[in-house]
């Protein structure tokens, strides 16, 4: 369970998150939608401890992410993360990209790590690209490498940060399909996304962020199909 309580986050004098309360249960898919600059991505970075918070708390399976005593490297093994810019490691082959962390973090043998990596890459449909370098792949394929790389650590949660925003339109589908497959497999996911259709079809709940607060949260039938708040309606009118 990811428990987010009254989280506040500022960059200097700019308050990005103004008290966020969300609880994500095991097996749940939560999509976060909202305008650019509403703090969606920042929240993901805070969940992963990549950004410090100024107030409130975030607990992952009961462990306080931002406590000084927390071993953040160990905690991050539970939290797979995929970024908007896919960030494949350019000096490693696709297989090595995925096998690296299992080898150096989970201390698996090279053969074991590569075996695990190959299975994850097959899962995202890249079995034929194991020995290619990221630069030889399309954006959509690189993004799927990044997903496989996260999955290879066998995390309990996956955090997706606008993973289709930087892709050419024709490549968006393959990445969303991969995420759909994960959701069907029961992965707990938090997806920051601009893909309203995906949020509606795949999520158990949708949260609409506006100016650093959760304006509206609930099942997609409510938040997307019949929003109660004026701001949510205005946003959806703009993007749909």
């Amino acid at each position: 369970m990811i428990d987010i309580r009254a989280v506040q986050k500022s960059f200097g004098s700019l308050e990005v998150l103004k008290g966020i309360d969300i609880t994500v249960q095991k097996g749940e898919v939560l999509s976060i939608i909202g305008a650019s600059g509403s703090g969606k991505s920042t929240l993901l970075y805070c969940i992963n401890g990549l950004q410090p918070i100024q107030g409130g708390s975030i607990h992952v399976d009961g462990i306080d992410v931002h406590a000084k005593s927390t071993n953040i490297d160990a905690l991050r093994q539970k939290l797979g993360m995929v970024f908007q810019q896919w960030n494949c490691f350019p000096h490693l082959t696709v297989l090595e990209n995925v096998a690296l962390a299992p080898r150096v973090v989970l201390r698996k043998s090279k053969a074991e790590a590569q075996d695990l990596a190959a299975r994850q890459l097959e899962r995202v449909g890249l079995a034929s690209k194991l020995n290619n370098y990221p630069s030889e792949l399309s954006g959509g394929q690189q993004q799927r490498v990044a997903i496989a790389r996260g999955l290879a650590m066998q995390p309990s949660y996956m955090l997706f940060d606008e993973v289709t925003s930087a892709l050419d339109p024709e490549l968006v589908g393959e990445v969303l399909d991969t995420m759909r497959m994960l959701a069907e497999d029961g992965m707990t996911m938090i997806c920051v996304t601009h893909e309203i259709g995906f949020a509606r079809d795949v999520s158990d709940r949708v949260a609409f962020f506006s100016q650093g607060i959760v304006e509206e949260i609930g099942p997609p039938e409510q938040v997307i199909n019949a929003p109660e708040k004026e701001r949510t309606r205005a946003f959806l009118n703009k993007v749909l």
Binding site: D73, R76, L79, M81, H91, L100, V104, A146, R149
Partner: peptide, 26 residues
Amino acid sequence: PRMTRWASRSLGMTYACDLRYIVLPI
């Protein structure tokens, strides 16, 4: 890029691992 380093850290790689396997090679 900072995001490349975040990607490796988000996999649970320690600061030292990030430096050794990602930052210095690149």
